[in-house]
Design a protein around this nucleic acid. Structure first.
Lengths: 222, 222
DNA sequence: TTCGACACTGTCCTTTGGTCCAATGGCTGT
DNA sequence: ACAGCCATTGGACCAAAGGACAGTGTCGAA
């Protein structure tokens, strides 16, 4: 668990025109601004990318391009006219936030806080829509109760149920390390690694280390 | 920013049994705990309600009841066995967070930070799944069926050097199948599967099947 | 103090994975 | 006809993985 350390979050504005809206700069005076397509040196995964879409090109295409440039950094999309239908596929494509390009500086800072803390910012419009659908969902709820017994196989919330040591080895396994390598790195016996690995398998219902890797990476083992 | 401001956020635990899990209390020592169904005076919209579901009742039904009690306060659902399919309708019903009931205190505090800032906490599993869905979908489909615009160049390059049979087994390996399973599915000997797998390893410079899976899923083996 | 969770180690064993050594038949282009 | 690639299979061999026993020591909660 990362303790609350000083916050060196890097902000990067990417827009087709290389100009930032005044409110961006007001919110993050020390941020950099680059034009879309400009080469960027690799960014830490903790960086925040504020991406203003080019309205005329397919959003997913732009996103794929951007992703190649910025690596694992978190992307927040700024849309001129937020649209729920538009936003959903973007989240599927991995963005962490979606908000109005004309948001106030205070709003933008709030979005940054949320995404930085590991959350998703789904935008005012989409949020409203989710909240609004409450009534309709509730209206037809009593009759059509959730399918309880025949629910799909559970994807456990991985890390939370593991001890810290187990998390360590689980991560190592999921990135392709062998038991022997893990043992050497952690300064313990290969036998102990096997013990942890076995325990992780049980808790996450993984059949072998490859399945574990798939689970840890958010995929469904076949 | 360690933010020395006091925390005026009200936390309220609601569970069927009126007992809080130890880690809740560890995370929020000053919080209140009540049994589901207990009358609660109206709460400010900024309050956080941690709601542990009763596993035997329809979730949406419980949620509707809870909503009547707590008013506009933000609700976070704690699930014993988080399940993406299960979670989505809950978000449609207005909850602001969904996470594992066995999460650590640090995790719970992070969730609180995000929701408090106005964000959604969708849980590790669901988040992973969203982030991975695009990439995974592409990695799993046959090379011939890749959509024109969005093909992952890395994967495409890799697959190009493989024969069609090799691609078949490579995909199967990458989704967690064992040699035996692949053999059965393809109607060939396990020995033959090994031959193909070995050939794939050479071509893609993979050390073992787990590395192959990482490569095929667009990740960097450590 | 007892109990349980955790980290750690051991031995024995089976299964799986992976790499050598081959070989055979089909198919294609020269 | 011949060379070359592909799919297929066999046997042997060894390393890695994983399960099934068992055991030690620490630490904190009850």
């Amino acid at each position: 668990m990362p303790s609350s350390k000083p916050d060196p979050v890097r902000h990067l504005f990417v827009s087709p025109s290389a100009v930032a809206l005044p409110r961006w700069l007001e919110a993050f005076p020390k941020a950099s601004v680059v034009a879309f397509g400009t080469a960027v040196r690799t960014l830490p995964a903790t960086a925040l990318i504020w991406f203003r879409l080019d309205e005329v090109r397919p959003a997913l295409e732009q996103l794929a391009e951007l992703r190649k440039m910025v690596g694992p950094a978190r992307i927040i999309v700024l849309a001129n006219q937020p649209d729920s239908e538009h936003a959903l596929p973007l989240f599927s494509a991995g963005i962490r936030g979606y908000c109005n390009a004309h948001a106030t500086a205070a709003n933008l800072r709030q979005v940054a806080r949320v995404v930085q803390a590991g959350g998703l910012w789904i935008g005012e419009a989409l949020m409203q829509r989710l909240l609004a659908s409450t009534q309709t969902a509730m209206a037809r709820m009593p009759a059509t109760a959730l399918p309880h017994g025949l629910a799909n196989p559970v994807i456990a919330d991985c890390l939370a149920t593991l001890t810290s040591r187990e998390q360590e080895v689980a991560r190592a396994v999921s990135t392709g390390s062998s038991n022997k390598e893990i043992a050497r790195r952690l300064g313990i016996t290969e036998r102990t690694v096997k013990a942890h690995v076995g325990s992780v398998f049980q808790k996450l219902k993984a059949r072998d280390r490859l399945h574990l890797a798939l689970i840890m990476n958010g995929q469904r083992p076949s």
